[in-house]
């Protein structure tokens, strides 16, 4: 749960729509949302950010993975209202502003870590979260800690290779 210094109070008397603020890929949005809107539907349907995919809509596939305040979550199981105030990163916000790919994106291409590509935005956001968490030491760890992202095309071998590649480079850089 994102801690907030002065938690805003909401009363039952409010109309059903709720005013929230979300910073998405660095841009602040003030929005009125119905409380049953998921973060996934908000991103795709309201903000037009269709890079984040809807696979199962039940937390079972990881296609909807985004970073909320730097932490990877399933956007399909998060009601947007509960994330009021959060900074969200979607796949559209992963590359640099000038279009330079993030090393993970480059590694996915270099390792041919996709076939149809439907799971890829979720895989990449999930791997970003994994790298920040810092608990993956080897390929087995990556397999276990990326298990929340299903790939119907079965590109797992190359996905693990791509993530491992970036994890090793990052570790070498921190060590240097």
């Amino acid at each position: 749960m994102p801690p907030s210094a002065t938690p805003p109070r909401r009363d039952a008397a409010d109309s059903t729509a709720v005013a929230i603020t979300l910073t998405v890929n660095g841009r602040e949005h003030r929005l009125e949302v119905e409380p049953w809107t998921t973060l996934l539907d908000l991103l795709r349907e309201r903000l037009g950010l269709t890079g984040t995919k809807k696979g199962c809509d039940h937390g079972q596939c990881g296609a909807c993975t985004v970073l909320a305040d730097g932490v990877r979550i399933n956007a399909c199981l998060a009601l947007a209202v509960t994330r009021d105030g959060a900074a969200v990163t979607t796949i559209e916000g992963v590359a640099a502003a000038d279009g330079t790919l993030h090393p993970l994106q480059a590694a996915f291409i270099a390792h041919d870590a996709l076939q149809c590509g439907y799971c890829t935005p979720g895989q990449i956001c999930s791997a970003l979260g994994l790298l920040t968490e810092g608990h993956a030491r080897d390929a087995d760890d990556i397999r276990e800690l990326m298990s929340g992202n299903i790939c119907r095309c079965g590109a797992y071998q190359n996905i693990v290779a791509a993530v491992l590649d970036v994890a090793r480079t990052e570790r070498a850089e921190t060590a240097a």
Binding site: G59, T65, R72, N74, G129, S147
Partner: peptide
Amino acid sequence: GASAQLRNAAT
């Protein structure tokens, strides 16, 4: 249990 993403949200 669950996945890394779910454990990040689950309380």
